[in-house]
């Protein structure tokens, strides 16, 4: 039980996928223009993450090692399609806000990354809890970004006006540059807190964080270039 609690809580703070592992940057920047779409994205990705973790973990002894990445992608894509159809049917306004980013959950590095790093090696229950923790961490980080951007950029929070800012919104925060800026500042704040606790700062690991790193020669080329 204690182990499961640890699997769950690591994704929220210590290994937060967005703010500590720097994964899933595309949806983080693109869908956080309002709290509503940020949380919608977070929940949609979490559902896919938990379901695909469960299925991949259950199939981990059946899937041959050589074709595991394509197999993972098929599982993930199936769940993305299910979520996409459900959102289209029941939450059409969210579907409109998320647009192309909803099907793009397929290539979200967090999901393939967890499949490769955790679900492919661990039993079903632990994988489900791991996916849930990572999903909550992802949603929380997106909520934070969405709240900052909506409050400053639109002067509202979940559609209700914020005093003073409502009449003086700083539009730049909900435009693309604001996304990069808020992410950068949040990152600096998180790094600061991590350093105080003696933890390493979040670094852009680029290649190492990518689930394709093993099969990719870029890392090798980068090393050769450095020599």
């Amino acid at each position: 039980m204690a182990k499961l609690t640890k699997e769950f809580s690591k994704g929220i703070i210590a290994e937060n996928p967005v703010l500590r592992l720097v994964l899933g940057t595309c949806p983080t920047l693109a869908t956080t223009t309002s709290v509503e779409s940020a949380v919608g994205m977070g929940l949609a990705a979490s559902i896919v993450l938990v379901c695909s973790n469960i299925v991949i973990s259950a199939l981990r002894k059946v899937i041959p090692d050589k074709v595991r990445i394509p197999a993972y992608i098929v599982v993930i894509a199936s769940f993305v399609t299910i979520v996409q159809m459900a959102v289209k049917a029941f939450l059409p306004s969210l579907d409109e806000q998320l647009g192309v980013y909803l099907p793009l959950i397929v290539v979200n590095c967090i999901i393939l990354g967890r499949a490769e790093a955790f679900a492919g090696k661990n039993p079903v229950l632990a994988s489900a809890v791991d996916g849930l923790g990572m999903g909550v961490g992802f949603t929380a980080a997106l909520f934070l970004m969405g709240a900052v951007r909506e409050i400053f950029g639109a002067g509202t929070f979940l559609g209700t006006g914020v005093p003073f800012l409502e009449s003086n919104p700083m539009l730049i925060f909900i435009l693309p540059p604001g996304g990069f800026f808020v992410y950068g500042i949040l990152m600096a704040a998180v790094n600061r807190m991590a350093e105080k606790k003696g933890k390493p700062r979040a670094e852009l690991r680029g290649c190492e964080a990518c689930p394709m790193a093993q099969s990719c020669a870029l890392k090798k080329a980068d090393k050769e270039g450095a020599n």
Binding site: I172, P176, P177, G184, A188, N191, R201, L204
Partner: peptide, 21 residues
Amino acid sequence: KFMQGLPITLVAASLVSVSFL
């Protein structure tokens, strides 16, 4: 120090993005 690495890279990306606006 606290902006080194990724944070400053993201802020720089923000400025490049402003130019595209």
